[in-house]
């Protein structure tokens, strides 16, 4: 199971990096969110995908899945959610003010 997950995560990283290297700003933001998806799945996979009950003591199961990575992923999800929403608004504002979403045109050092 871990092998399939690793392949899927690899695919997410590949597509994410490809999008990150493109010209359009929206594609870049989509790339970053694919990367964060990949990394959250990686965090889940690296704790071994053994079968067990959900980490609730009420389940009274023999074995539970590792609860720590789930807490880490939850933390990381909200952080990347905050950053992504900020990035989207920044892109919107930049489009309004700079009048382009092409990263090639945002190069240069000239100070207006």
């Amino acid at each position: 199971m871990e092998l399939y997950m690793s392949l899927a995560i690899g695919a997410l990283f590949t597509v994410g990096v490809y999008l990150l290297l493109s010209k359009s700003l929206l594609r870049i933001i989509l790339g970053t969110s694919l990367l964060t998806h990949g990394v959250h799945l990686l965090l889940l996979t690296m704790s071994r995908l053994k079968t067990g009950a959900a980490p609730l003591l009420g389940q009274k199961a023999e074995s539970y899945v590792d609860p720590l990575p789930q807490a880490l992923i939850l933390t990381s999800i909200v952080i990347s959610f905050g950053v992504t929403s900020f990035f989207f608004v920044l892109a919107y504002k930049a489009y309004q003010k700079l009048g382009t979403d092409d990263m090639e045109e945002l190069r240069g050092k000239e100070d207006e």
Partner: peptide
């Protein structure tokens, strides 16, 4: 303009940070 670049590079490095934490864990 510069914030777009700064935020992008830092999202990338934070993503790699989480990946490194995942591997180490």
């Amino acid at each position: 303009r510069e914030t777009l670049k700064y935020i992008l590079i830092n999202i990338l490095s934070s993503t790699l940070f989480v990946a490194a934490v995942a591997y180490l864990y």
